[in-house]
């Protein structure tokens, strides 16, 4: 399956799971909103150009917003993590040229610790910005802090489960760097 087709399918699957499974769950607590959809952006291939990465993320966030009737609320954090992603990958890649040898960020291509750092930083950024935008409408500082931390923990748990459930084949493309 080509990488483009795979990502198009992922686009719709992540949106539908986010809207019809995670947002339909009875709320546990006001601080906890389970978010998983932005994993789509973390899984996009290395070789996508920076401006198209941001454009895809913007459209992706806006699609979710149309389902939840909050235009712009999810699109803005998606664009932010898409902008930061290439910087992080440059810093975190340990092997020389892993971004040329593998297709997309994963445990195999980056290693456990760098991949975990990558996920945690982008999760905190995404939730931080998202809850900050909510906080500007209402809420207190404790709401902001509590929600960022609680939601990030739940999201990291969901990402861990997804990584264990979904096996992504990462082929080693070439020996030459």
């Amino acid at each position: 399956m080509s990488s483009l087709l795979k990502n198009i399918i992922r686009f719709f699957v992540f949106i539908l799971v986010q809207v019809y499974v995670l947002h339909k769950m009875p709320p546990l607590h006001r601080f906890i909103t389970p978010y998983l959809y932005y994993l789509f952006i973390l899984w996009l291939p290395f070789n996508i150009s920076r401006s198209s990465l941001m454009l895809v993320s913007f459209l992706y966030g806006l699609t979710l917003d149309y389902f939840l009737n909050t235009p712009g609320l999810h699109a803005a954090p998606c664009v932010l993590i898409a902008y930061v992603r290439p910087f992080l990958i440059n810093v975190l890649i340990s092997q020389e040229g892993a971004d040329q040898n593998y297709a997309s960020p994963s445990i195999t291509s980056m290693g456990w610790v760098p991949y975990l750092t990558y996920v945690i930083i982008l999760t905190l950024l995404h939730h931080g910005y998202l809850v900050f935008l909510e906080w500007m409408h209402f809420g207190t500082f404790w709401y902001f802090l509590g929600k960022v931390l609680a939601t990030s923990c739940i999201s990291l748990l969901l990402i861990l489960v997804t990584e264990l459930l979904v096996f992504r084949k990462e082929k080693f493309k070439t020996n030459t760097v």
Partner: peptide, 24 residues
Amino acid sequence: YFNFIFFLVLQIIALSFLFRYNKF
């Protein structure tokens, strides 16, 4: 600075959707 400008433009579009919600 094309990427940074593009980032700012997308952010402004998203935030204007958010804050002009009713008109939008």
